[in-house]
């Protein structure tokens, strides 16, 4: 087959996949620590995109130099959205920590609905245009068909972030404490680790990653509305399960596999089957590897 076309689709899939991966990391980190599927995570991603939009609009208005707007807006979105994540955990999950497992799940769905409607009321129901903030990158001209400036930015930023995250979890004190808490919270607490603050840190990191994904996708697509978190969150959740929920490299692999599979489906079959095939893939992988691609075998504690 046409190699050029294949490479174009591959990179298209990588771009899409690395966004899935960024969001999936939030699901996987939270699940790893407290065993909860944070269904409001897609909405956190949406809040990130909106924060960046508002900050970028304001910076543009006061005449901030164009090149710096994206950076400042992204940082502001990350900080503000991290605060949302922190608050979300304190309000919706912490009071339910010793409740049965289903209660925080319902609380998560409630938060998701709340955040969506909050943005709908506070902002608008319409799609709003997101400004073009990504600078032209002349050195990409030769790669123009494979990668545009936004694709390049998405790949570079998400790869860097994910590498930093992996090293942070593996080598820093907080990272080690986090892994310890994930393995056995009670034992970690006995050894003097403050589990509450670690859980907060997890939510902050997860939300910051989602915000980053939100900003990147918003500048890639050029339009956002209050509902963009739903499908993105759903796909990222799929990616997290695909890779093995609770595993950090798993979320990355799951995101990329899902993104590339979707891109190839559209490219070689039809866009009609994009979602169908990605969920078929999920079912197949779960049949043969119930814990996901990189997930560890666990004994079910029911």
């Amino acid at each position: 087959m046409d190699l050029q076309y294949f490479i174009e689709l591959l990179f298209g899939g990588l771009t899409r996949g690395s966004i899935y991966a960024l969001i999936a990391l939030g699901y996987t980190l939270v699940y790893g620590i407290i065993g909860l599927i944070n269904f409001a995570h897609g909405e956190i991603y949406m809040v990130g995109a909106f924060t960046a939009l508002l900050v970028a609009g304001w910076l543009g208005y006061i005449g901030f130099p164009a090149g710096g707007i994206l950076l400042v807006a992204a940082l502001a979105a990350v900080a503000w959205t991290a605060a949302y994540g922190f608050t979300l955990e304190k309000v919706a999950y912490k009071p339910l920590r010793s409740a049965p497992r289903l209660s925080p799940l319902i609380s998560a769905i409630g938060m998701s609905i709340f955040l969506q409607n909050y943005v709908l009321l506070a902002q608008t129901s319409d799609f709003v245009p997101f400004p073009d903030l990504v600078p032209e990158m002349p050195f990409l001209a030769s790669l123009g068909d494979v990668m545009g400036p936004t694709d390049f930015l998405i790949l570079v930023v998400s790869c860097t972030t994910m590498l930093v995250l992996v090293f942070w979890i593996r080598y820093t004190r907080t990272g080690k404490a986090m892994r310890a808490t994930a393995q056995n919270r009670k034992m970690a607490m006995l050894l003097g680790i403050n589990a509450d603050s670690l859980i907060s840190v997890t939510f902050i990191v997860g939300s910051a990653l989602a915000a980053l994904g939100g900003v990147l996708i918003a500048s890639h697509m050029g339009q956002i509305n209050f509902n963009i978190g739903f499908l993105a969150g759903m796909k990222a959740f799929t990616a997290a399960v695909l890779g093995g929920i609770g595993s950090v490299p798993g979320a990355v692999v799951g995101g990329l596999v899902l993104g590339i599979a979707e891109s190839m489906t559209t490219g070689y079959l039809s866009g009609n089957y994009e979602d169908v095939l990605s969920f078929c893939l999920l079912i197949l992988i779960l049949i043969f590897r119930p814990d996901g691609i990189l997930g560890k075998k666990q004994v079910q504690k029911v």
Partner: peptide, 15 residues
């Protein structure tokens, strides 16, 4: 082709 309106990116269909 049909596309999913809420998809996070349309590069595959564009290509």
């Amino acid at each position: 082709e049909a596309v999913t309106p809420d998809a996070v990116d349309f590069s595959a269909i564009s290509r």
